[in-house]
């Protein structure tokens, strides 16, 4: 489940080029368009990502790690299925650290909130594929992803019905025209979230977030996420670096996309249990996908 949601980072960091009459859109429409486009670009994606996590300190407005960061490196493949491509299948394999290398997870998630997601885990120490009880995504409390500051909630998409949105301001931010949109969870959502409010700086031209601030239940700033190294690949915009700072724990996690291939042809059989145990099969397909990275 964690790895499946981790892949959503990539969706979240990506959005296609999009031009529109910005002033005609209300906040909900902006968020919906951003969400819809994120789903479209995740249909057939290979990525190699690295998450570095550490405690941080600040000196002269420069944020630095004050301890050796923990580093996780993984490769993931995902594809969208179902009506409106709202269901997803993905497989993730950890490459580093050495103690976790080879851990593989296959996850199927469904847009229908009444339908349980499905997950299988392969641990080399266990020597077999194990089905996991994961429940429906709506049923889960937010949890940290691989011990990082990114939580399942930070990665979530497609739950726009559960929030109300308001444009707080619009104007130039870091040289780009943005909307600053406030997102407030409804009562049902409030029980399942750690946040009372989220502010999103949405780039008006590229329809990607440039910054996100999340506030705790007492209204205090809790997390701040910055998106950097924004690139256009195959007509799609993506941020290759996302850094989340947890102001309570004074820890940060940086997700760096080392390699990515968008809209690639992913064999349906690759997104099955075979990939977890048939390493020769997995490497054969991955080497083909690696050759297509941008």
């Amino acid at each position: 489940m964690k790895t499946m949601l981790l892949l959503c980072v990539c969706w979240w960091m990506m959005a296609p080029v999009y031009s529109l009459e910005s002033t005609e859109l209300d906040a909900r429409a902006i968020i919906d368009k951003m969400d819809r486009q994120q789903r479209l670009v995740s249909n057939g994606t290979f990525s190699r990502s690295q998450i570095s996590t550490c405690k941080y300190g600040k000196k002269n407005k420069k944020i630095s790690c004050i301890e050796t960061p923990r580093i996780k490196l993984m490769e993931s493949v995902s594809k969208q299925y179902g009506k409106n491509k709202k269901d997803s299948k993905n497989v993730s394999v950890l490459l580093q650290p050495a103690s976790e290398r080879g851990i593989g997870m296959l996850s199927y998630s469904y847009d229908d909130s009444s339908k349980d997601s499905e997950s299988w885990l392969y641990l080399s120490a266990l020597g077999k594929v194990k089905r996991l009880a994961s429940g429906a995504s709506d049923d889960q409390e937010p949890t940290a992803i691989f011990g990082s500051e990114f939580s399942t909630e930070d990665m979530e998409s497609g739950k726009t019905d559960e929030y109300s949105y308001k444009i707080l301001q619009q104007g130039a931010y870091q040289g780009h025209q943005v909307w600053v949109i406030e997102s407030i969870p409804n009562l049902a959502r409030l029980k399942k979230t750690h946040y009372s409010k989220v502010l999103i700086w949405v780039d008006q031209a590229r329809f990607i977030p440039l910054k996100i601030q999340s506030y705790d239940k007492r209204g205090k700033l809790y997390k701040r996420t910055s998106f950097r190294s924004i690139e256009n690949i195959k007509g799609l915009w993506l941020a290759r670096e996302a850094t989340i700072m947890n102001l309570k724990s004074q820890r940060l996690s940086n997700m760096s996309t080392q390699a990515i291939a968008l809209n690639v042809d992913v064999n349906d059989e690759f997104l099955t249990q075979r990939t977890l145990t048939d390493f020769a099969f997995r490497e054969k397909h991955l080497s083909r996908l690696r050759a297509q990275v941008q």
Binding site: K61, S64, P69, I71, S226, S256
Partner: peptide, 10 residues
């Protein structure tokens, strides 16, 4: 903000 995070690229 400027980030000074070791790349640790593998």
């Amino acid at each position: 903000l400027e980030f000074d995070i070791p790349p640790g690229k593998i």
